[in-house]
Design a protein around this nucleic acid. Sequence first.
DNA 1: TTTGTAAAGATAGTATTACTATCTTTCATG
DNA 2: CATGAAAGATAGTAATACTATCTTTACAAA
Lengths: 226, 226
Amino acid sequence: MEIQLQIKMNEKLFLRDPEQSELGKKIILHSIQLIHLNGFEAFTFKKLAEAIGTTEAGIYRYFENKHRLLIYLTAWYWSWLEYQVCFQTNNIKDPVVKLKMVIHLLATTVEDDSRTSYVNESILHQIIITEGSKAYLTKRVSEDNKDHLFKPYKDLCAVIGNMILECNPHYKYPKSLASTIIEMAHFQHFFMNNLPSLTDFGKNKDEAEIVLFLEDLVFSSLHSTH
Amino acid sequence: MEIQLQIKMNEKLFLRDPEQSELGKKIILHSIQLIHLNGFEAFTFKKLAEAIGTTEAGIYRYFENKHRLLIYLTAWYWSWLEYQVCFQTNNIKDPVVKLKMVIHLLATTVEDDSRTSYVNESILHQIIITEGSKAYLTKRVSEDNKDHLFKPYKDLCAVIGNMILECNPHYKYPKSLASTIIEMAHFQHFFMNNLPSLTDFGKNKDEAEIVLFLEDLVFSSLHSTH
DNA sequence: TTTGTAAAGATAGTATTACTATCTTTCATG
DNA sequence: CATGAAAGATAGTAATACTATCTTTACAAA
């Protein structure tokens, strides 16, 4: 069974849909590689064009600027992850088991999904850890939010928030706990590898411990009696 | 009683110590204002020089580049906050009360500290919320860490981690919980004001609710029996 | 077969950014 | 009064972040 996975993206994310052409797909493929290699700050459309074998002007026909491209990549990632969450928790009744699956998906290394030919999810995951929050930590965040550019992130947060309420309908902070799980899955990973004294995982550098920490955090809150 | 507060900064943070001259203090004062006004991406040394009434070259004598200046500002902030934490929790015996004080200091609006003439802590706090993580979310993080540029952040995290252990010596993740409190105090604040559907505080936009959320999160974990 | 049109390639150009270099002036100190 | 450090003034460069325009390619409808 060979399935192709296509994610429908908000049209405001791009000037021309990169999924609809060879050049567009190359832009996605190589931008992921280049950002991973040198970081978002050192990433330029000129270098990207050289890597692809096209010109700067060609890239600008697809994306307004590199920040928009970053938002596109993050939006793509969160959409893909919401799909994963939906798929992997399907038919699971126990909301606790579902939430554990979500934590696992968020906090452990992603494998490349062969159903998406031009996106390497494993590398994209690493980019999102380091660069993901830069997509919204800007002065433009409200405008970008009005264009619904962060909808995939918010949707995932809502899905997780609902699972939290399934576990404990009286819990008062489902959305904040959801965004905490999402952000901390990534930040603890980044800290573990780069600033290990900010975590308790520096010795083993084992992401399974991040999962245990997040599970403890979440289910303590949800089973709490005070 | 008129007290001056001076924070001793790591010498690798600057080329020339900005606290030792009028121009240096102006650089700190105006960079805080400009970054707050237009965001870190739009902030340039040229604009800063214009605002101060000096030249670009003058700024470069103090800071290697704008990223180093950002790291300086964050390091300054975390040092100042650790002092606040130390001061405000002094003589408090109960570690639970101490930890609540820390959460309060992290999550609520900071007032300008009149003992530091050229730093507006209230504005600096807002900058750290939006721009703070950009100081370490880079490809250079390990090198910068080797120069101990993030020591104030790590020190604060260690202080909070120790308070957590005072509350519950058997808790397994004191440092990760500490970094979670720090990061989430800021992220929930940012989300509340800019992407409110990621939080449960969008309706009232009241930072007191962030404090309640964090207290619930922390003390559920520390009192947990599973 | 011609013609229209959309994408992509090629080339050029501009304002701004992120610096570096150098020379002069100011000013406190011995 | 000499001198040395900080600051001011000016200039210059490579890279960045775009915009504009003109040509070629390709495929599809008339």
